[in-house]
Computed example of a mutant assay.
Amino acid sequence: MSALPHAFDPAEQQAVYRAIRERRDMRHFLPDPVDPDLLARVLEAAHCAPSVGLMQPWRLLRITDPALRQALHQQAEAERRRTAEALGERGAEFMRLKVEGIRECGELLVAALMDGREQHVFGRRTLPEMDLASVSCAIQNLWLAARAEGLGMGWVSLFEPTEVARLLAMPAGAKPVAILCLGHVEAFYARPMLEQENWTKARPLSEFLYQNRWGEQAWP
């Protein structure tokens, strides 16, 4: 089959698919600093993300204050313990997992939703959560660019949003979505860490793809 007229060349295509395939949610980091030019490149990749109505609802906060970093770690640790309680019989197993690298990573970022989002109606009248979907696209762009550059990234969602918003002096209406650990790693996990730790197992695409109507199998 011949290549489509606007396709990247085969080597470039494979690089894109490799970044997608080898992206990992990292928890183990080296403390080495991230080169400023490299950081700027991956942040620009995040900012190139698509957004509904071109609203660009993402706000990215770079955390350089050690006291703030420690406070965010404490937020994650408190929520880790609450999550373990909520998991019941799997709580002890959960507590053995490493779920964040906030204190170790070279760069710490917080991705947040902007304030004043209610003013943006285009694409959100019936689906207001599209602002969150747009921020997620920016995070994914950052993740893939980081992997291509050889940096690891981990998405931490273990925190109380109102407390993190207070710590970071966010205006009313803004909301933190993710604490992002970014930095050098000794190695990338061969498989998703939660698979390696036997917490869960990823399922194949065929289980998630339907044809025409919900539940109707698309592929044999």
Rank of each mutant, 00 (worst) to 15 (best):
L194N: 06
P171W: 12
S136M: 04
I139E: 03
P66H: 02
P57V: 07
A19H: 11
T126F: 11
F94A: 07
A46M: 06
Q217K: 14
E85G: 09
F29C: 03
R90M: 10
H120D: 03
G123C: 06
Q119E: 10
F29S: 07
P192V: 03
H47G: 12
L54M: 12
F188A: 10
W199G: 01
R24K: 06
R59P: 08
L132E: 15
E79F: 10
M26Q: 14
E207C: 02
F29A: 02
Q14H: 09
A138G: 10
W58C: 01
E207R: 13
V164P: 02
L108E: 00
A3V: 10
A15D: 12
L113E: 07
R27S: 10
Y210A: 13
Q211W: 13
C105E: 07
L54C: 03
R203F: 02
A86G: 03
A40E: 08
T162P: 03
R103S: 13
G123P: 09
L113N: 06
D131M: 04
L180T: 06
L39A: 13
V42Q: 00
V110W: 08
Q70C: 02
R21F: 08
R59Y: 08
G215E: 03
A40C: 00
A67F: 00
Q14T: 08
D131N: 10
I63G: 02
E149S: 12
E44G: 02
W219D: 04
L151E: 07
S51R: 08
V16L: 14
E186M: 03
A45N: 01
T162H: 15
A138N: 04
P33R: 00
K175I: 00
G173R: 08
F208Y: 14
P66Y: 08
P57H: 09
E85H: 14
Q74L: 12
P220M: 06
C181N: 09
A190K: 12
R125W: 09
S157M: 06
Q217S: 14
I139D: 01
L54W: 14
L68D: 12
P31D: 07
K175Y: 06
L142H: 03
P192A: 00
Q13L: 13
L209N: 01
R96F: 07
Q74H: 10
L180V: 14
G215S: 03
F94T: 07
G91A: 02
W143P: 01
V99P: 00
H184M: 05
R81I: 05
H6W: 13
V16F: 09
V34T: 06
C137F: 09
D9C: 11
D32E: 14
S136H: 12
N141F: 04
C48G: 06
L180N: 01
N141R: 11
S157A: 09
V121E: 07
M1G: 15
R117A: 02
Q217T: 14
